[in-house]
Design a protein around this nucleic acid. Structure first.
Length: 106
DNA sequence: CTTACGGCCCTGG
DNA sequence: ACCAGGGCCGTAA
């Protein structure tokens, strides 16, 4: 028996995360809020960090509230996430995520 | 646009 | 119990 609230938090976050459709993204804080734990953005981050590298969960669809990838550009974590997102139709311009629309809006 | 700072909340030493 | 540190966030300079 461990900390029940935290266990609940984790399972909720993972559940919601598993239901994020392809091509969509969510912020750490948003995810926490949906899970019923507003203010737990950092915990979501730690949880993502704890996920196994080969996880099926779309951890890469979680980004920060500034629509940026929360990793330094020179890290491979950053590259892995970026690659995944680009595969799902996102474009990263100046570190910002943008939907890949047919007509680049002007 | 880039930094800094305070606030937030758990973990691990 | 104290303290430092995170895949964070919003505001201010």
């Amino acid at each position: 028996m461990t900390n029940q609230p935290m266990d609940r938090f984790k399972s909720q976050v993972l559940l919601i995360l598993s239901e994020i459709p392809e091509g969509e993204c969510i912020a750490y804080g948003e995810l926490a809020k949906l899970a019923g734990f507003p203010g737990y953005a950092r915990q979501v981050g730690s949880l993502m960090k704890s996920l196994p590298k080969d996880t099926k969960l779309p951890w890469y669809r979680v980004i920060n509230a500034q629509h940026r990838i929360s990793f330094a550009e020179n890290t491979d974590s950053y590259l892995r996430q970026r690659k995944k997102l680009e595969q799902e139709g996102w474009i990263i311009v100046g570190n910002k995520l943008m939907k890949n629309e047919k007509h680049t809006k002007k």
